[in-house]
Simulated scan of single mutants.
Amino acid sequence: MTPTPPPAFDLGPALALTLAALNIVNILYTWWRTRDQNVETRFRAGSERMDRLDTRLASVEQTLRAQPSKDDLHQLQLALKEVQGELKTMTAIMEGNNKIMERLEGIVARHENHLLDGAK
């Protein structure tokens, strides 16, 4: 019987496994070196965004503080009702004055007619 030679060592799978391990190490190294930069950039962008939101929120709060409240609107409504009542009173007084003026105009017209007719 002849001895069988040992199987030949195939470098293909070992080389593929080594390359895969190197790729993983490269990915981890790149992530480790750039993680601080990404976090810092994202933190800075988030901080700027939050500052803009704080500014907008302060502006909205200031606008809302300047708006009239429910009580202010109620006081305004009461004041308008009071003005409306005073306008009705003034209208009644003006109508009375107009009627007086019409009577006075009639009296003055009669006096004019009497004086004009009496002089003839």
Rank of each mutant, 00 (worst) to 15 (best):
W31P: 02
R44A: 14
T91R: 14
L116H: 15
T91Q: 13
L19N: 07
R33S: 04
A16I: 05
V25F: 08
E61P: 01
A21M: 00
G96I: 11
T2H: 05
P13D: 00
L22E: 10
K99S: 12
E40D: 14
I107G: 00
I93H: 13
A92I: 11
A45P: 04
D72H: 15
T91N: 06
G85W: 12
W32R: 05
L15Q: 10
V25M: 09
L116S: 14
H74D: 09
Y29I: 08
L53R: 04
P6T: 06
E95Y: 02
D36C: 05
L87V: 13
M94W: 01
K99G: 01
I100M: 07
A66D: 15
R65M: 06
T89N: 05
E95R: 04
H74W: 08
L80S: 07
E105A: 13
M50K: 07
L87R: 07
L76Y: 12
E40W: 05
P13C: 03
P13G: 04
Q84R: 13
Q75I: 08
T18H: 10
I24Y: 09
T91A: 10
L57E: 06
W32H: 08
K99Q: 13
D36Q: 07
T2Q: 02
L76E: 15
M90S: 11
K120G: 11
I24K: 10
L76K: 12
M50T: 00
I107Q: 06
R110Y: 05
L19S: 07
D36L: 01
N38L: 14
V108G: 01
R103H: 06
L73F: 03
D51P: 00
F43T: 12
S59R: 14
K81W: 05
V39S: 06
Q62N: 11
P68G: 00
P3I: 12
G46W: 03
H111Q: 10
Q67S: 08
G96Q: 09
T4D: 02
A8Q: 12
V60G: 05
K120S: 07
D117Q: 15
D10P: 00
R35E: 03
A109N: 13
M50N: 03
P5G: 12
D10C: 00
A45I: 09
K81P: 02
R42G: 13
L104E: 11
